[in-house]
Design a protein around this nucleic acid. Structure first.
Lengths: 648, 648
DNA sequence: TGGTTTTACACCTATGTGAGAATG
DNA sequence: CTCATTCTCACATAGGTGTAAAAC
């Protein structure tokens, strides 16, 4: 990974222009072979840039590879039917590069852990990407979300992570809209796009709009690009989803692997106080400094250089701003970052550096990227391993990308028991004017756009999705866990069904703004929040109700089925579009009240936890079937919601 | 200043292409008139881009204008003799724009104050510039320094700053090399260049490499661009110096003007805790919120938006990374930032935003800039006022720029008692290999380049420079205070003279690296540092000694003469090239020891202060002449140094 | 008991406060 | 010795981070 050769040839994913790296390693046979065989009869009326998986030689470390292989339900090419004119053109084949790849890989190689706390915790290797290939003047909305990787719960035993049963139910995932959205392509491309404000929490009652994760579960951050000049248009826009396998992590409430702890301490500027140099951090440590001595030292030096690095906007407190890990090729440290070629300092990294928005970030261009290419649809095994069973297309120097268009009609064909997931949105909307006034003297934003939600169709093959999925898209599904190949029949918003409950739900709290299709402002977790006094939103008992996102637990009396993170593009999601911005809740709540609102205490923290605990002991299905009472308890508040959506 | 018109036409300084703004105000007559008359017979074999002052209409506020007028000794065109082939070509006419102009102006209009503390303090409106017009692939070194504006000491009385006597002696100023240096033009231009790490201190024993300033004195930050692919080549490279008058400030140990305090609180993310919203900051306040109500509110809202802004690299702790002030045209707040035209949110600021590296920084493009154009040579009055006496060329929408080339032979002619300062470097160098190893596991940097220091010639007219000058270039001069028109005779390194003591001194501590022409590493303030145990550096008593920079106080037995900040390009400086990077001192010290070193406790803090105090009561010259004993005390350690440099 | 989770803490960086100290 | 100007320093605010012990 620190191979000079790697740094020489920057590989970023680009749909059409894949660079073949000279020193590229051969792609595992099963992967290469799998590619063609898995898409024999899939129909791609309009083969999008991502429909035909582009395989790149793998470059990731062993750990990364393993983890990668374990992940299935990869990106799905929606193969939505788009007329040529509707396509976005050649300028819309954005290339996305993960920043701090080296750092991410270091973590990934030993099993990244992300602490989740009640008050919310940032991700440490910060999730930051560099985007290229956007239309300079077109506006885009960039988002990210974090979805469950599988339906397993993990435990850290004897220095290794092992599966420890079925996953706990996932809370609906929020789509985090980058605060700068919408912005012009030129702006987005001018510098790496960071998602620092996205916080992770394990507090299911979180009112900040943080991403709620389950401890000891594995997650995968995803990045989305949507060409839209208005957040209100998100639901009908094409989502281009990028997944960087090395950003996978296991959520924990306390670090399990000491090596991870050490890596965090060594790299996170905010944890300087725990570094060996003197103060704090008593015992432990010492031994785990040998993970890969050379690498460690190198990267350490590199990271520390961030201290003296000034290039970032406003590095702030000692540099917490500059993710040290991405500062890998500062001109002054090119010797360590770019070991290849030139002995002349001045000539190093020239090609790579040129055009980079930040010298420090150049490194990512030099580091390899794993390309995960998802095909249309994938069959999901119960758990990890047996990669062949899955339509996982993986390659190095790339990322997986999915494109879906929820605003256009889409059709799909089912072949070989595999079918691309499609969502058809036949709008019949809602015109509303939302005046977003952030609290705290924030900037004002007035949006006036039609918000349309209409009949939608979802066609899919259930097995395609692991039991634990995004949850933020279709957080709950009615029906059995093994539907026929024909999948669920199309659901229309006019015929409310739990199945569609989350499809149209919309919630934006980016920039402290929450909006709902109902014309009111909603406090962040309105659809499952149990916070006293929190207005949870309007629930017109008519068709509009189907637009409301509901927690999957609402339907726990039936087997839960969730989409795999890799299979459900965020575009369908729409569910929770949030952005951390505490402090505005009052205003939002008030605004919400002004609309047609009702409080829905879906369930409380306590009962939820109880259910969760229960689940840990028994397999998921067992829980669903055996302890319905418990879940019923959780879903009590859902009763109301269930009315318009009879358990089918 | 918030005039929409201003924001429409972005004016940045460009040597050849000066844009004439429609609504430009006429330039003060004396300025226009002064220009030609002051350079009647000056010879400019190769008229550099800056030799002929370009005047731009003024746009600054009253306060800014006043301050600007008060400043003299403006940029000097070195008129160095450069053969056509040696010139850098048309690609080397960089345009530089100060970021956060609005914020800077807000501060400037009420008298910017910068707190200096023992432990070092950042500047608050962060000094950040956007550079354009560089050669994409050529390497550049960007630097900044802060120099005294005049030789006055100030006091804040009855809500206004007034002169309170002669200035105290200045400590040698360090040239802060941007940590990313050297980097390609493309890299520098890809985003604003920030100098966050530069810290201000009043601790003359500072070992961090911070910039040492005198409290209650006025300073002017300067920005320099040097086309060089190696830091070692700095001394022989052409420096393009840019001065933004609105960044002028008075150093204070405690804020004097409450309005400034409030502005800081309102804008500095790190001071959030003092904002009115609840906690901290008890009394005071309330009234000073009316400076310009509308503006205040606007900017306030704008700044606060930084909180939700995520676009910066790693906003880190609460956003300290994004200087709120510069976040003036975030896409979401364009309504307030861009008052003109479109009502459609999506269409606002399009032209301005396009191509900007950061949406927030776009604002600077819209704000006016003051252009200060210095001509070759200037006559300096004793103090402020009487602007006519000075060759001050000033215009709005520009900055002053100076170009000097210390690596080429230079000749000058003396006319009208005014002569451009010139420095001729006839190299006869020193080949050395420096291995820079930062402490703290920092990155490694190995530089192998010839470091040449040879016979040099300095021709100048003493009166050209105010008594208080940069100090970092020629911090002390032997000879009388009023030399004849012929100026000092050329000094050669082979004939050591105090006059040249600082010319060749070289010290780099950027990235925690200090290098000296002697092949050893030097701890930062080695030439005047009094810290116990700190190695102050080698002082070979041979010709090499003349390369060592020495504190001006070493020569205080003679009248002190310093260059005006505007007249001495940093290129000659070379004296102190530093960059904050504490913690490396040990290593550096050790390395220093490995060379031919000796400890020189030049003087201690106490005696220094004593001398300073003394100076406050009596005019500068008086001090020099009358209290030699006091100064002698300070210079005691200098005795050793004086040996090779007999008091002439 | 043991695996998790929670929580009060201490540390880091940055910033302004305000009382007390140093200086004149 | 007093008064006023300056300066210093312990604090408190803010936010992020891991720790260790307690809680669950």
């Amino acid at each position: 990974m620190r191979d000079p050769v790697d740094t020489a040839a920057a590989m970023t994913y680009h749909p059409f222009h894949h660079t073949n790296r000279p020193g590229a390693l051969p792609l595992p046979a099963f992967l290469s072979a799998a590619q063609p065989s898995f898409f024999p009869a899939l129909t791609f009326p309009e083969v999008g840039p991502l429909s035909a998986p582009q395989l790149e030689p793998e470059q990731l470390g062993a750990a990364a590879s393993e983890a990668a292989l374990r992940r299935l339900g990869l990106p799905v090419h929606p193969s939505t039917v788009k007329s040529p004119k509707e396509r976005e053109g050649p300028d819309d084949e954005p290339k996305v590069t993960l920043e701090s790849k080296n750092l991410w890989n270091e973590f990934h190689n030993m099993g990244t852990e992300m602490v989740i706390t009640k008050s919310g915790r940032r991700m440490f290797p910060p999730f930051k990407v560099r985007v290229e290939g956007l239309d300079l003047t077109a506006k885009y909305i960039l988002l990210m979300d974090i979805v469950a990787v599988d339906d397993s719960r993990y435990k850290f035993h004897s220095s290794r992570w092992t599966v420890a049963g079925k996953a706990d139910p996932e809370m609906p995932k929020r789509m985090y809209i980058h605060p700068d959205s919408p912005s012009k392509g030129g702006q987005w491309m001018s510098k790496p796009v960071a998602f620092h404000k996205l916080k992770l929490t394990n507090n299911i009652s979180d009112k900040h709009g943080f991403t709620i994760l389950n401890s000891m579960h594995k997650y995968q951050p995803r990045f989305h690009i949507v060409r839209a000049n208005d957040i209100m248009k998100l639901p009908y826009s094409t989502f281009r989803t990028y997944v960087f396998p090395e950003t996978e992590f296991i959520a924990v409430t306390a670090y399990q692997n000491e090596k991870i702890t050490q890596l965090k301490i060594d790299n996170n500027p905010f944890a300087k106080g725990f570094r060996d140099t003197g103060n704090g951090r008593r015992e432990k440590r010492n031994k785990q400094l040998s993970v890969s001595l050379l690498n460690e030292n190198q990267s350490k030096a590199i990271r520390d250089s961030a201290d003296s690095d000034d290039s970032s906007e406003q590095p702030g407190p000692s540099d917490p701003f500059c993710s040290p890990g991405e500062i890998l090729s500062s001109p002054l440290m090119s010797t360590s970052a770019c070991q290849g070629g030139d002995s002349d300092l001045d000539l190093q990294c020239e090609d790579v550096m040129a055009g980079c928005s930040r010298p420090e970030q150049t490194s990512s261009l030099k580091s390899e990227v794993i390309l995960w290419k998802g095909s249309a649809g994938s069959k999901s095994a119960d758990n990890q391993d047996t990669p062949k069973d899955r339509k996982l297309f993986r390659a190095s120097d790339g990322i997986s990308s999915t494109e879906m268009d929820s605003s256009k009609k889409s059709l799909s064909e089912i072949r070989d028991g595999i079918m691309p997931m499609m969502l058809q949105t036949q709008s019949s909307g809602h015109l509303q004017t939302l005046d977003f006034s952030g609290a705290h003297s924030r900037q004002f934003l007035t949006v006036e756009a039609p918000l349309m939600f209409g009949p939608r169709r979802l066609t899919m093959k259930p097995e395609t999705f692991p039991n634990i999925g995004t949850g933020h898209l279709l957080s709950s599904l009615s029906g059995t866990n093994d539907l026929g190949a024909g999948g669920l029949s199309p659901q229309s918003i006019t015929s409310p069904s739990p199945f569609m409950s989350h499809l149209s739900q919309h919630m934006l709290t980016s920039q402290g703004i929450s909006l709902s299709p109902f014309g009111g402002m909603l406090s962040y977790p309105y659809h499952y929040m149990a916070a006293p006094g929190a207005i949870t939103s309007a629930l017109p008992s008519s068709s509009a109700t189907s637009l409301l996102s509901r927690n999957r637990y609402l339907h726990s009396t039936r087997p839960l089925m969730r989409f795999s993170p890799y299979q459900i593009p965020a575009s369908f999601t729409s569910s929770l579009l949030t952005s951390r911005s505490a402090g505005n809740s009052n205003l939002l709540t008030d605004l919400c009240k002004s609309g047609s609102t009702e409080s829905h205490l879906l369930y409380d923290n306590h009962s939820y936890k109880k259910a969760k605990a229960k689940q840990k002991t028994a397999p998921y299905k067992a829980t669903v079937k055996g302890s319905t009472d418990e879940l019923q308890n959780i879903n009590k508040p859902a009763g109301r919601l269930d009315k318009p959506f009879p358990p089918q």
